Amino acid sequence: MNIRSTWQCAALLAVALASASACTALAPVPTGEALIGQPASAVEARFGKPPERYPRANGGTRWLYPTQPYGQFTYAADFDASGKLISFRQILTTMDFAQVRVGTATQNDVLQTFGKPEETAYFRLMDRQVWSYRFKHEGVWPSLMHFYFDRDGIVRLTQVSPDPMYDHDHDSSR
């Protein structure tokens, strides 16, 4: 088994552990979409307690089921103000990241949209806090999305880079 297969298995295992059944683990989005219109209790019964919960602007709530730190997916269950599921989807996507507006979005916006980052760092010379999320760029390439925040917590830069975890040419013994 190569390293890529090992990491893919780890990601699938993380999803499986967060899921109530093997069927749910292999198809979380269709399983979640089938629950649209159901109360939060039905989602919790199927997927378990969400590791992260955030308020939404419309009075609803977003539950997040991340597969980080090694997974490339976070599943979001969005509820309306009455507690009914209105959306269930994978949100670590190129299109979702593109919705973050440089100069306007805040750390709180990013947190409430994508959840806790896989990794954080502080770049002293830039004076920027950086949050990184593992994902598949364009649904294909293992990548990291980086958000650079200024001292006021405003997004000042976004950057996509290859995920070094999948760099098969890198040999750490050199």
Rank of each mutant, 00 (worst) to 15 (best):
K49Y: 14
L13F: 13
K49L: 12
R46W: 01
A10E: 10
V29I: 05
S19W: 02
L13N: 02
G37S: 11
L17W: 02
A14L: 04
T24C: 13
Q38G: 08
A34D: 09
L12E: 14
C23A: 14
L35F: 03
L35W: 04
A42P: 04
V29D: 11
F47L: 14
S21W: 05
A27L: 10
A20V: 13
A40N: 04
L35R: 06
S41L: 07
A18R: 13
P28T: 01
T24L: 01
A34C: 04
P30D: 11
A42E: 14
K49W: 13
A18F: 03
A16E: 08
T31N: 11
A11K: 01
G37E: 04
A18S: 14
A34K: 03
A34E: 06
A25D: 10
A34H: 01
P30E: 11
Q8V: 07
C9S: 11
A20K: 14
L17D: 01
L13H: 00
A27G: 08
T31A: 15
A10Q: 13
F47A: 10
A27S: 12
C9E: 02
V29G: 11
G32E: 09
A45S: 13
G48Y: 12
A45P: 06
C23H: 09
A11G: 12
Q38K: 14
V15I: 15
A16S: 15
Q38H: 07
A42H: 08
S19V: 00
P39S: 14
A25F: 03
C23G: 10
A40W: 12
L35N: 05
Q38Y: 08
L17F: 00
C23L: 09
L12C: 15
E33A: 10
Q8N: 02
F47Y: 08
A14V: 07
G32P: 10
A27D: 06
L26W: 00
